[in-house]
Design a protein around this nucleic acid. Structure first.
Lengths: 202, 202
DNA sequence: TGTAACCGAATGAACGTTCAATTAGAAGAT
DNA sequence: ATCTTCTAATTGAACGTTCATTCGGTTACA
């Protein structure tokens, strides 16, 4: 009896999940709706009960994945810890999310470089903006970071983490905890406020 | 509309150029062969005189663009200069290439995250491998860089530069020379061999 | 009995590719 | 120079397939 609500939600969820998996394998244009339907165990028409079109399905999938990413990033975030520790924790979480959800990684990268991102710039995960952007802004306002345009920070960080995750996944290597910390040190050493010897802050 | 202004460049060239421009605008699946033909000022059938299929057209376009990128990166490279100076010069060149060829930037990012890159891993620009990889390997062997897996270096560097270039292009901002140097400093400070005070190399 | 979820064959438009026909140009012969 | 011949380049209508979407009908359930 309480299963029905779950079941109803289940089909929508199944469609999203199948779309994610198939897009990783075949790309956007390589995955017809019929394939999604079959993979998700629903009829083709059912997809249109939950989504207006293939395009909105993909846009909604993007928000769905970004929501999941935002939640995963913030696990165990403790505002009482030093900012650098919090930063490292967030980076570790983000990295692990990619490793545990390679299809999400591939999909997100495909999406942001596709015309979708340009055509629906307003379609974003509100959760991600609220939480993750807030975290970065805090670091900027409190001068933990280099004095660059704040809008450059997040992409810069993401670029390196994505590169590392893609590398691990494509080469079928397992990074040790130390390896990962080293990668995050690359990011941190790059963007942290530099204390150059010849400049003195009184 | 008609890209084939210079007839001496040939129809093959015009097709590649049009494909690049249209993919930036509409993505892979958004640009039918008929549209490419019209934009390039050739008949649909003519494309198949130069390319076996749409798929090979895109793969060959990838190699074509990577070749151009490799050439652009290496402009004014002087092996007598200090390695760090050479590194900065290469980064500046790479960045400028993206800014001057936004369609190439978008295309490359789309390509590497698409199934093409997975399905044709052997299709790469030999020029790029020869020149650019060689440059990075030199830096690794001579310990200019942090002690990480060398295969992580190039993607890490590229990630940050691409982030910066995309940012400038999407926000319609013009970076000053100093801004760009600051971005490259982020990269360099991240990947250079760190001299931590508490570790002494005799 | 009413409504929402669900089905899957049918539809029609879009697309990649083919091909028979035409043109351009080069090479050779006279 | 002119004509002949051969090949490569080019054309675009036609073909066959694929695919997103629709819709009339069915089921589940409240």
């Amino acid at each position: 009896m309480n299963v029905q609500l779950e079941d109803n939600y289940g089909k929508r969820e199944a469609v999203l999940k199948s779309t994610l998996a198939l897009i990783k394998e075949y790309g956007f244009h390589g995955t017809p709706m019929s394939m999604i339907a079959k993979h998700a165990g629903v009829a083709a028409g059912t997809i249109y009960h939950y989504f207006d079109s293939k395009e909105t399905l993909i846009v909604e999938l993007y928000i769905h994945v970004k929501d999941r990413l935002a939640k995963a990033i913030l696990v165990y975030d403790d505002k009482k810890l030093p900012y650098k520790d919090r930063f490292f924790n967030l980076m570790i979480n983000q990295y692990n999310f990619y490793i545990e959800n390679p299809d999400a990684l591939v999909f997100l990268e495909q999406y942001v470089n596709s015309p979708f991102a340009k055509n629906y710039p307003e379609k974003e995960s509100q959760l991600f903006i609220d939480k993750v952007h807030t975290f970065f802004n805090y670091g900027i306002e409190n001068a933990y970071f280099r004095n660059i345009d704040p809008r450059l920070l997040a992409p810069t960080v993401k670029g390196t983490l994505v590169a590392a995750a893609n590398f691990q996944l494509s080469e079928h290597i397992v990074f040790s905890k130390e390896d990962l910390i080293e990668v995050i040190n690359i990011v941190w050493d790059g963007i942290k406020r530099q204390n150059l010897q010849h400049i003195q802050y009184p």
